[in-house]
Each structure stands twice: as structure tokens, then as C-alpha cells.
Design a protein around this nucleic acid. Sequence first.
DNA 1: GTAGGTTCACTCAGTTCA
DNA 2: TGAACTGAGTGAACCTAC
Lengths: 405, 405
Amino acid sequence: MLRNQTNYTESDRTLRKQTQRNRRKSASKRYKLLLTCVVCNGDAHGYNFDAISCESCKAFFRRNALRPPGKLKCCGNGNCNISFDQRKRCKKCRLDKCLQTGMRKEWILTDKEKQEKRIKIEQNRRLKQIHDNDNEHQQQITRRSKTDSELSTDFQNVSSSIICQTLLTEIDWSRIKRLQHAYAEAVKLNQTAGISQYPLIQPIYSTLELFRVPLYISSMRLITFFKQIPEFQQLDKDEQVYFVKLNTLTIVFLHSIFIYDYQNEIYHEPNTNDPLYLEIDWMNTINKEFHYEMKQIQMNFINLKQFDDNIMKIFFLITLFSNYFTFQYSTININTLNVFKTQNIYNELLYKYCLHHYGFNKTSLLLLQYTTNIMKIQKLITKFKSTAHNYMDITQLTPVMQSLL
Amino acid sequence: MLRNQTNYTESDRTLRKQTQRNRRKSASKRYKLLLTCVVCNGDAHGYNFDAISCESCKAFFRRNALRPPGKLKCCGNGNCNISFDQRKRCKKCRLDKCLQTGMRKEWILTDKEKQEKRIKIEQNRRLKQIHDNDNEHQQQITRRSKTDSELSTDFQNVSSSIICQTLLTEIDWSRIKRLQHAYAEAVKLNQTAGISQYPLIQPIYSTLELFRVPLYISSMRLITFFKQIPEFQQLDKDEQVYFVKLNTLTIVFLHSIFIYDYQNEIYHEPNTNDPLYLEIDWMNTINKEFHYEMKQIQMNFINLKQFDDNIMKIFFLITLFSNYFTFQYSTININTLNVFKTQNIYNELLYKYCLHHYGFNKTSLLLLQYTTNIMKIQKLITKFKSTAHNYMDITQLTPVMQSLL
DNA sequence: GTAGGTTCACTCAGTTCA
DNA sequence: TGAACTGAGTGAACCTAC
Ligand SMILES: [Zn+2]
Ligand SMILES: [Zn+2]
Ligand SMILES: [Zn+2]
Ligand SMILES: [Zn+2]
């Protein structure tokens, strides 16, 4: 009976692991060059895709099994002999025989799995390199607190679906949609110059690079995002500039937490072809304490069960319109009341949104946590701005970027 | 010392391994000039068509082996000597010797296989090119959903045979035949200016080109098709123009789904010498969302087991006679009842046709699916028309084409 | 050590052009 | 016609997580 292509699922994967483990236990020593490929009778080293097969059939199967059927054709009558020296003659029959003899296409990794694997390898390589080159005080940041396992998946999977309902009025609803749209537009309008078909891992070797590449893109996107917000447009030009200068960098780092992929320990704006940035690389920029504290804040965010991208986007705006230097920098005449009102629009929106989604009890705690952590970032950034010149040659940045520091 | 391909038995493994290793090793080292052509004794590089042969015999064999036998004649007595410097003397004997010494004509690719290979190369080239120079928004459309396995072959093979029987009256039958004929005529009357003997792959680099070349041809053909339909002829001139303007573009895209070759990922009107258009190229026109949604619809169609070109053609007409803007565009005085009747003729025809071919149970579901998806296209096109100017300079199109937007 | 993927030199189809 | 060339596919050798 030919295999009837089933959609494989999680359980398949578990099964694979199981099978492999059992096999290891039972057949321990004996085979090495003593096996015969069940497909072509060539020499086999062991199991490949759940059948004892040779290297060539392994590669053949990997390359062809997932191709849509029907592409391969048999020139004979569909039962060509597949032997060691004739295996190349008929692909169709070779593939059929592979399947017949029990090779499983479900065990071929998907593109996504391959990508993940690649990331993991790259990460380890980098890690090793760091260890090798600079084994000075490498005071490792706690690279993983293994405790909070599945919280992270929440973070990944939270869908941002808004169900129009009681609390949120039509206007609120459209406002949120506009935020989503504005953000998506902002991302689209500021593309990186990536080349590869799958996102590449781009190393970062210095603070300057950090600010010239990933943070620069983020900044541009955020500013584009702001510019699309009506309430922002209604501010004076001066006020616009003031708030962007004052708060963008904070938001950039808030944003970086937002795009951090906890699973793979990389920074990557989802649904883009942006390069991937390894956390390890970021860690080696600026200084250790900065990232240590940032990591704490990041963890706090990730531990929030309700990590929601709409909340994040609203917070971007609330942060943008915050003026914590009310007294210090009175160089510019800010219409405080107006800004306050604007900020309040989004505070209210956020509050209603949270009430709707998370209920009364959770909401206040949730907002408190968000706010607290954002204020921590603000503080950290304020401190950083005053010492930024210690970590890079600021004149090497674009003027826009300089103005954000 | 010629390679005599004996079948090795199980126990011969060692020998086989030896042989294989030898062949590989020797082949790799003394790659050049150590082999001898079994046909003409010239220098050979390796196997060609399953016999060790030189470049010239390889080319000779490819060019001549598939020619009808008897065309070549020997001027001697059929056993001319074929040697390095005499090989050109007698084609007949050279070909005979090729066959004798084991060259296989089955291994010469057929025209179809060659075409497929060409497509594959072109596709890769295009893919590479895209990644090289235009690395903006490269967000890959899910290029293949591996789920739908053999459905696709159905799509290819559905024959359009109509068996005259109970349900379909003589008139229905002739109507369908007329549709088929009208369509074939329309295709014939609007030929592309292709010259080559096999269809060429024609690249498309912009939305403008898309509309100037493949979609233009499709439009012309469809309009020619409509013009041959009696019910269409009976409409007022104004009404004709109205419906053509209103619906042709929708039908053009419906048609594009119809001519999409799932196996090769190309667009090509079957049985013509039209150029081939790569799906990859289409994907880079207009915008991503448009093609993404169109792809979904395409998949829905391909997943219909009953993908039948008669149904398609009837639906072209039903779509043509649909007036979904009844209220909005009342600029022209449409005899709604008349049009409705006309559309109904084809609705009934379609219904009977489906009943006949697919039975009662399937029919309603089938028609529902078709209709739903066509309405999706309609919607997509309506949206597109309002923004078409963003994607190309419309004035560059022919007037007819402009009027369809 | 096993069994996934990756790499790259190599083979053999077709294609080009003097 | 055939020498030179192109590119998809093959498989041995290799890399790495588990
Ligand atoms: Zn094998
Ligand atoms: Zn076969
Ligand atoms: Zn020869
Ligand atoms: Zn002769």
C-alpha cells in the first residue's frame, strides 16, 4: 500500500523523535557499512527518513519528495527496476520506491524548521567566537531563564484581532485599525536592502553599527508611523520635532523589545525580509549594564501574559506624547494642555481596549506594569543619551539619528 | 573494455563498490582525453545517452536519432567504417553504429521535456535576478501549498467532451458547441506575433507590460469571443459597450486563472504559440496583496475537482452580463430585464450542463463555489480599477485597454 | 554515534555559434 | 557539424544538535 499522504502534525514530530530514540537503544553497534539501501541496494550507513538507505537516495528523497506530485513522469510503464546502477534512470519510479519502502516525507524539515536550525547554528558559532576571542571578563548575562517556558509562545502567538463590541466605539475601533495600518505602512515604506530569499543574519560588531543599521531602520519606521497619526499632524512643527527628539529613542528600544524573538534570541521585525540580528551581538554594544537592565525590562514584558501588539502601538504614541522634562527644558513653548489631551485620547483608548480584552481586574495591573517598565526604559535612555559619545563617533551617524540622541 | 553493464547480484557488493569507486575516481582525475568514443574512436569525456562517446557523436545522435528512419541512406553497402576522420562520410552507418554501440534514443528529451527544462532555467534566472537587483519588498508569496496533491492533474486533464444526452437538449448542445467554436476562433483571430517554433518565455517587468502584452491579448480575444455570441449581438451598441467596459477585466483575470499551468507555474493559452509568461513575473506587478488574494482564488479554483473549460466559458458570459452596479452607475439606460434574460439563458445552460456531468448533489455546491470566487475577483478588480493609475501610466495603454480600466 | 541538513565538484542533458 | 558552454541534478563528504 502506497503511503497516503497525510498532513503531518506535532504528533508526527514526536513520533519521529520517539522512533529515533528507540532505534538508538536497540541497534547500537553493529551497523556500519553492513547495511543495504532498501531502495537501490547500494551501501547504507543507517536510517534516513525512517528507512535504511544510502546517501544518494537520502539526498534524492529530500530533494524530490516534497515536490508536487505529477511533475515526475515515468517513461516506462511505472515499474522500472531501481538498482544501484540504474537508479538515475527513472526519477518517478525511484521516488515511488522510496515511499513504498517506507521513507517518510513528513520527516523532511520544512523551510521554517530549516531556518530555525540555521539560526541556532549561527548563534552557537557566534557564541563560540566570542568565547575564543575575548575571554576577558565575559560576565555572561543570564542567557536564558529556563523557568518561563511557554510564556514566550504567548508572546509570539497573540493575535491582534479586535472584535468590535460594547466598550470600544466605532471611533475607537477605527482608530486602532488606523494604528495597525499606519504601522504596517511605516514598515513597508522603510525597507532594508536585504537580498536573500530568506532573511539573513547580519552581524553587528559595534555600537556604531547598532545605531546605523537596526536602530536606524526602527527609528525611520517609527517616525513614519508617527507622521501618519492625525493627532501628531495637528501639533505645531516645533512641537512635533520636540517630541520626536525627546522620545523616539525610548520608543525605539521599547520597539526592540517588541520585535525580539524569544525563541530564537534574535531581533527581527515580523513579516519582513529584514536581516536577523542576534541578541548576542547587541549584548556586546554600548555597555554591559545597559543591556543587563534592558534585559530585565525585556523579561518583565515577556512575562506579561498579555503582550499584545495593539497595546504596544498605543504605548508608542503615549510615550511619544509624554513630556517628563516639563520644567527642565523650557526652551520651547509647548502647549502642554493640548499635548496632554492628545496623550489622553490614547490613554483612554488603551484603557478601554484592555478592559475589553482582559477585564477589569487585570487591566489596572497590566497598565501599571507596562507603564512602570516604559518609565524604566525612559530613564535608561536618558542616561545613555548623556554618554552616547563614549560608545561611538556620533558624527558617523546620519543627521536624523544624531538628533535623536 | 567497453562498459558492459551486467546486473550485479546481491553477493557482488564488494565488486560493485569497487567498480563504482574506480569509475568515479578515474573519471574525476583523468577527466579529459582518456576515454574513447565507442562510435568513432575519438576522445570522449563520459557517457552520452548511455554510451561513452565524443561531443560530435553526441550532437550527431541527438540531431538524427529521432528523425524518421529511412531518411538516411547509405551509398555503400551498409557497413561503412566509422572512424574518427571518416565519421562524416555516411550518416546512415554512423547512426546505425551509435545505436549498435548502445546509445539510447529514449534518452533524448522530447520537445515537451525540453520546454519544461527551459522554463525551469528561466524561472531560476528570474528568481535570481529579482533577488539581485530588486531587493525591496520581496515578501514571497507562498509559492506552493503542498497540500493539494493530485487535484492539479485533474485540472490539466479534464476533457471537455459533451455527451449528448437526456438533460441537454439539441439546442443546448449546439449552444455549447458554438461557445467552443467562438472561443477557438477568437484565439485564432488574435494571434501574437511570435515567430519561434516553440513558445518562448517572455519576461514581464512592469504592470504596464502586463497590461500591454498578455492581458491585452486576452482582452482582445475575449471581446472577439463576446462579439460572436448572438445574445450579445442582440444588445444595443451602448449596452454592449457598457458591459464590456464593466466586466471584461474581471473576465480577463478569471481567464488568466483558466490558462494557468499549475505544473510549470506559467500562464499560457493552451494549443497556441503564445509566449509563456512566468508566474514569478506576474507576481511582481501591481501589488503583493492583489496577487496574494488572486492566488487564493486561483487555488480555490484549482481545488475544484471539476475544473471544466465549458463551465468556464459559460461563466465568462454570465459574468459579462452581470450588472452589479445597478444603482451606482445609472448613467446609461440598460434594459435590465433583457439583460437578465440573456444572463439567465446561460445560467440555465450551465445548470443543466453541470447536472448532466456532475449530478445533482455536486452541482449546487460547484456552482456556489464558482460564483463565490468569481465575485471575489469582481471585488478585487473593482478595487484595482480605482487605483490602477498608481501602478502604471495608463495613457501608455491602447485606448481599448484604457477603456476597460 | 545517529540522522537531519549543507556544500561543492562533477555528470550529462541541451544550447550556441563559428 | 562539433567545440565550447550552461545549468539542473547527483552524491560523497561534511557539519551539527541531540
Ligand atoms: Zn539507495
Ligand atoms: Zn519508471
Ligand atoms: Zn564519436
Ligand atoms: Zn554507409
